[in-house]
Every structure is written in C-alpha cells, then in structure tokens.
Amino acid sequence: VTLFVASYDYEARTEDDLSFHKGEKFQILNSSEGDWWEARSLTTGETGYIPSNYVAPV
C-alpha cells in the first residue's frame, strides 16, 4: 500500500477531483496518469484525482 500525506489544502475544481485538507492521508490507487493521481482518502473514504505536487510520501 502506497501512502501519501497532504502538504496543503486543495479544493476540487471538477467532479473527478478530490478536495482535501493538509495532513489528510491517502492510498494511491493509480499514479500512471502524470501529475494527477487517483487516490482514496483514508479520512473520508472518498476516491478521486489529486494533484501529485500537493502530497508527500508518509
């Protein structure tokens, strides 16, 4: 399981994006799509795309 933590807050801009807060942890589901990764929030359980430059490895 690949875990990352949010370095910043992010507000979703499309329905496919995932909003999150600094400190929130994610399981990365797919990182092969470039700068936007499909992730599941371990806080909310929601799945969506997050900007990879807003998160760091745990």
Rank of each mutant, 00 (worst) to 15 (best):
K25N: 06
T47S: 09
I50C: 04
L29T: 06
F20A: 01
W37R: 00
D35M: 10
V1E: 12
L29M: 08
A56H: 14
G45A: 04
K22I: 09
E24V: 03
L42Y: 06
S41D: 04
F4G: 03
E24A: 04
K25E: 09
Y49N: 07
D17P: 00
E46R: 14
S52R: 10
D9C: 08
T43A: 10
F20H: 01
G48H: 04
S32A: 12
A39S: 01
G23L: 03
F26T: 00
I28D: 00
P51R: 05
A6M: 01
S52G: 07
R13E: 10
T43N: 08
K22M: 08
S19C: 05
S31T: 13
L18E: 00
S32F: 10
Q27R: 07
T2L: 13
E11F: 10
A56D: 09
G45R: 03
D17A: 15
G34C: 13
L29P: 04
V58T: 08
I28A: 02
V58G: 06
S31Q: 13
V5K: 05
K22V: 10
E24F: 04
N30A: 08
Y54I: 07
E46N: 11
A56T: 15
H21F: 12
Y49T: 07
E15F: 10
T43C: 12
W37Q: 02
V5H: 04
V58K: 04
T43V: 09
D9A: 07
H21Y: 11
G45I: 01
N53A: 14
F26H: 00
T2C: 14
E38Y: 15
L42F: 07
K22H: 06
L42D: 05
V58S: 08
P57E: 09
T47Q: 09
V58A: 10
G23V: 00
G48Y: 04
S32C: 13
L3F: 11
E33W: 10
K25L: 15
H21M: 12
T44F: 02
D16M: 14
N30V: 08
R40V: 13
I50A: 01
Y49V: 07
W36F: 10
L3A: 06
E11G: 05
I28E: 02
T44Q: 02
W37F: 07
N30Y: 06
V5C: 08
G34S: 12
Y10N: 02
W37C: 04
F26M: 06
W36R: 14
P57A: 09
T43F: 08
V58W: 13
V5E: 10
S32K: 10
F4W: 15
G45E: 05
A39M: 05
D16V: 13
E15S: 12
H21L: 12
V58I: 13
F4T: 03
T2N: 11
S41F: 03
I28R: 02
L29I: 11
N53D: 10
V58Q: 08
Q27A: 09
V55N: 02
V55K: 02
F20E: 01
L3W: 10
E33R: 14
R40E: 07
L3D: 05
R13A: 10
S31L: 10
K22T: 07
V55E: 03
H21N: 11
V1N: 12
A56Q: 15
L29N: 04
K22P: 03
V1S: 12
D17E: 15
D35T: 09
F20P: 00
L42A: 05
L3K: 04
T44C: 05
W36D: 03
L42K: 04
Y10M: 02
Y54C: 13
S31I: 11
A39H: 02
S41T: 03
Y49P: 01
F20N: 01
V1W: 14
Y49A: 05
G45S: 04
K22Q: 08
L3Y: 12
T44E: 01
L29E: 05
A6I: 02
Y49M: 14
S31N: 12
S32R: 09
F20W: 01
D9Y: 05
G45Y: 06
D17F: 15
E11W: 09
Y49I: 08
R13Q: 14
K25S: 07
V1G: 12
G48D: 00
A56Y: 14
L18V: 05
A12D: 02
W37Y: 08
E46W: 08
F20T: 02
G45L: 06
W36E: 04
D9W: 05
L42N: 04
V55G: 03
T2D: 11
N30T: 08
R40I: 14
Y8G: 07
S31R: 12
G34M: 10
N30F: 07
T14W: 13
I50R: 00
D9H: 06
S31P: 09
T14N: 14
F26V: 03
N53L: 10
D16W: 15
S7W: 14
D9S: 09
S52V: 09
L3P: 04
P57L: 09
S31Y: 13
Y49G: 03
F20Y: 01
Y49L: 14
R13F: 08
I50T: 00
G23F: 05
L42C: 14
V58F: 12
Q27S: 07
Y10H: 05
Y49S: 06
A39W: 02
V5R: 05
E46V: 09
V55F: 08
L42I: 09
T43G: 06
V55D: 03
Y10G: 00
L3G: 03
I28V: 09
E38Q: 11
E24Q: 06
Y54Q: 07
S7V: 15
P57K: 07
S19I: 02
D16R: 15
D17C: 15
E33A: 13
D9F: 04
V58P: 05
V1K: 10
L29S: 04
E11T: 13
Y10Q: 01
D17V: 15
S7G: 09
F20V: 04
R13D: 08
F4H: 05
E15L: 10
K25G: 05
K22S: 07
G48M: 03
D17I: 12
D9N: 08
F26Q: 01
N53Q: 12
G45V: 02
W36P: 03
G23W: 04
L18C: 04
L18N: 00
E15V: 11
L18H: 02
G48S: 03
V58L: 13
K22C: 07
I28P: 02
L3H: 09
S52T: 06
